[in-house]
Design a protein around this nucleic acid. Sequence first.
DNA 1: CATCAGGGCCCTG
DNA 2: CAGGGCCCTGAT
Length: 325
Amino acid sequence: MKKYVVELEPTAPFHFDASLHKPDHFPSADNAWAPGTRWQTMRWQGLPLGLKFENRGTVDQPAIRLSVWAEESLDAAFLDGLTAEIVYRCNLDLDLSDFYDRFADDTQLGPVIDRWRGLRPAAFSSLYEYLLIAIVLQNATVRRSVQMMQALLETHGTALVYDGRTLHCFWEPQALAGVTEDDLRQLKVGYRARTIRRVTDAFTGGTPSTGAMDELVLREVPLETQRKNLLALYGVGPASVGYILFDMFHHWGELSHVSPWEQRIYSKLFLDRDPDDPTPVEELLHLLDARFGEWKMMAVHYLWEDLFWQRVHQPVDWLEALIRL
DNA sequence: CATCAGGGCCCTG
DNA sequence: CAGGGCCCTGAT
């Protein structure tokens, strides 16, 4: 494969590891991480690419070396477009100073901000790919989600060998043209086969009245229009949409749905309540809105990531019972 | 062995 | 608007 190198300069402060690796995400064969390095496959303009992000700076003087492997020759315009997309997806130009200013003195969030200054939300996938991830998360334990995603990537993805690793790259929606619901069912995704089939169709043709889903168009429309369009997808409900509005469309205050397992964790985290007697969701939402307002999901993200980074080093006793592996 | 619930969502009544 | 059913898997 041919290799290209691009130097990226995120705005400061930028915390490389906490931004480019999320320990709460289930492991998937499209990426790998070691401190200071993230490998990530990406399909862009139809081409499967192998990416490698390397930390070349510090929190206050950030720099990333991005290496790109491809079978084909890539020209400068392609690399510019790719870079712009990565800057968007990974929020490399995000300014969090208002968030930091407002919550530096919060007794709970302040210390977490100190610990993870420069942490950004980051998504590496396209909207279509993110939807597939959300679909395999539904009504499944983490272990099962991992199995389903692995089967999908091995069957329909593209294996890329680069930088001494083998990772799988997602397919394009059109690539599933001849794949039936029953074919997908063979991959043990269960009733999600129907969802995957129909969500894929929404990206290739859509319905005559709605047209195909277009991620770049959707980025430009108002939040509630985005929500409505996403909820219209078969098998996509408020839990999946909530994650997408934050991760993909960068609505840092979007938190209007809390699923039962999250409710238990939030109750403990924010109110020190017994998870077996959790705070009602309405009350949680009201409280988080009052405390963090337009930054409420960002606040949750910081606290959540902090919690899962703690877990990397040693189990967090109360949390272990609340997450199903 | 059988039964059950799971990091949702659809559909029905 | 509440609640049963859905695929499959691992826990009990």
